[in-house]
Amino acid sequence: MILPPPADVEAQLAAARREGDLDTYLGLLAEEELFVPIRRADAESILEDRAETFPNVYYETRGDEFLQVFTRGALPDLGSDVVFMSGALDWAVDGVGRHERVVFNRGTRGEWRLPGATLQPWLDAHLDDVTPLEEQVERLITAPYGHLEGPIAHALACGAHLAVLNAAPWNLLDARYHDYVAEVRGLRDWWGVADPPAWRATMADLIGDGYALTPGNLVLMLRLRFAAEYGPRNGEFDPLTWAEVVSRWCAENDAEDQADELRDTVRRVSRYEQRFRADGLLDAEGFVTTALSWDVGRAVNIARWGLAAGYCDALTAELMVLEAGSLARRYHQSWADLSAGYLMGRVLHSRDEEFGEWYPAAVRVHHQLLQDPGSPWVNLDFGSLSEESDA
């Protein structure tokens, strides 16, 4: 199947501009992540904690100067020396005086030039309608200018969990459509990735030769390998037998030092699967086959962020995403299988054994991706790929 036409906020803004409908226009902007251009040197100063504020890159024409604000799909290429930062509408126009002017989506059919004297009263009256960036979450966004079919779209869909959770388009692999400071800071602070070598090492950890050697993946693999020997109909066997299988494998493979950790992982996986069945992540007799999709899903997103941060070129990012997608198809049977494995990897990754605050949101994203008519998981067949080129 081909994805249905995605929502196009830029087209909606153009229609509101054509009709002169300011309330609708600003109402649309109030729900979006908005981008302002800044000099790359200023962005680096912010990242190095040498500056808290930044000078915007203004648009000048006929002696007039405009603050520039864009929706994601309207971002222009302003050259390698200019990057973007993002926030909600009130952030984007913060400090604009009554006699200053803002141009929204310059160069598009939805361009609208507005003075601060118009913007500030509207914001004062509609502040509750502005969605803060931190509340723009759990949104399934398909960019009309992104990949809609073919191998790259399929591979990007393997990282849809994180994209939906963060309200980012799942189908984008392009350095232009990002908050540069946020992506660099996120890679640095959450992943310890601050340069191209660290990015390459992280990608290798996730989808390189050692991708299947985590305790979770090992015990799940042993369950599948030995299931036939014990004869369960659906590939599941009781945790005690499973733990015995693990102990035997450790003894036969000179891995006794891993036995306690692996048996504990068996116990954890068994408990987590019970919760997954209760939450509809697995059917009544379902089980997780591998947690590899936890690494695959993160690899897709780190490839995207690495490209945005300038740690790789577009071809390298594309090859990494395609490799992640290939691994996903090799070890999973369906989108539902991939999603359950992703969540299993996430809970196993936690240091404690409790389901954290993130878990209910992840469950909602799972069901949204499997049920929403506009979801890539509904429209892109998991097992086969179109030979046509990507959009």
Rank of each mutant, 00 (worst) to 15 (best):
F276K: 02
Y331E: 15
L370H: 00
A163T: 11
Q333T: 15
V365E: 01
D313V: 14
H349I: 05
N234F: 12
V269P: 04
P55F: 03
R223T: 03
H366N: 08
V288S: 02
H154S: 15
G310S: 10
A391P: 13
D238W: 02
T118N: 07
T118W: 07
L29A: 06
G310E: 08
A336I: 09
L343R: 01
E138S: 13
V296T: 05
R101C: 14
E388L: 07
P115A: 15
A391C: 09
P76K: 01
M203R: 12
W190P: 02
F226M: 04
V181K: 03
S86M: 05
T316K: 05
V246W: 07
F35K: 03
D21I: 09
R101P: 01
A43V: 06
V164N: 02
Q258H: 11
P360I: 01
P197Q: 11
D283T: 02
A227F: 07
V137A: 14
V300N: 01
L123H: 14
D209Q: 08
F84Y: 14
T290I: 13
L78W: 00
V184C: 10
L282W: 09
N171T: 12
Q258E: 14
D279E: 12
Y211T: 00
V164D: 10
A14T: 01
A227I: 05
L22V: 04
T316E: 10
D77R: 13
A243K: 08
L140V: 14
R329E: 02
L222Y: 03
L3K: 03
P197L: 04
V378N: 02
P37W: 06
P239I: 07
Y311N: 10
I207T: 08
Q333G: 14
A227H: 03
G192E: 11
D238L: 02
E44D: 15
R268T: 13
T118Y: 12
E135I: 05
L89S: 02
A198V: 09
N379K: 13
D279I: 09
L319M: 06
E353Y: 04
A314V: 04
R298E: 11
F237T: 05
A228C: 05
A251G: 04
L67P: 06
M203S: 08
D49G: 13
V164I: 08
L67A: 12
E52K: 15
E52P: 03
E354K: 04
Y177K: 11
A43Y: 00
E44H: 08
R98C: 07
V82M: 10
P376R: 00
D352W: 03
